[in-house]
């Protein structure tokens, strides 16, 4: 059972929280909270358990901090894991793209929309917006006026 083996695999990492989740309510069997610096180790542990990265995104939770959200799932067994990592504004999160290549574009998307930098990323440039854009539209302070400056040609 992955719901048992994943907490076992994560236990040496001393994560802030590894708790079973209410699957019926949240859709996740495991709720994990980690520090951003621990994410490469967490990703490696999840990969060793045969889990793949389902999605990676961020939430601008407050003026001071973002929450990075990593979702993992498994091909053979229904076990979905949500990993949350709280990142102070302006700090860099280490990339996990060298461990899970699927994270490469997700991290570019997060950088594009939130302006969060992933240290060690091989090609951290904008994914969705034009490469010369100067906005990060999903940040709380983005009101839209900034976009006016980039009017269509």
């Amino acid at each position: 059972m992955l719901t048992d083996s994943i907490p076992q695999a994560l236990s040496p990492l001393n994560l802030e929280k590894v708790a079973p989740g209410d699957y019926a309510k949240t859709g996740y069997h495991l709720e994990v909270t980690a520090a951003p610096e621990q994410m490469p180790a967490v990703a490696q542990a999840m990969l060793n358990q045969g889990c793949f990265l389902e999605s990676l995104t961020a939430v601008h939770t407050s003026k001071e901090a973002f929450t990075l959200v990593y979702h993992f799932a498994n091909f053979y067994e229904l076990c979905r894991t949500a990993v949350h990592a709280i990142l102070p504004d302006g700090a860099e999160a280490p990339t996990i793209s060298h461990i899970i290549p699927a994270a490469d574009w997700y991290e570019r998307e997060v950088y594009d929309l939130f302006g969060i930098k992933f240290s060690g990323h091989p090609n951290l440039k904008r994914l969705l917006l034009p490469e010369d854009a100067e906005i990060h539209p999903l940040r709380k302070e983005f009101a839209g006026e900034e976009a006016k400056a980039e009017a269509p040609k």
Binding site: L129, A143, E145, E146, A147, K153
Partner: peptide, 14 residues
């Protein structure tokens, strides 16, 4: 919509 940042509103602009 006003202040949108993603699209070009009309092909005739380009």
């Amino acid at each position: 919509y006003e202040n949108q940042y993603a699209i070009v509103p009309g092909a005739d602009l380009i």
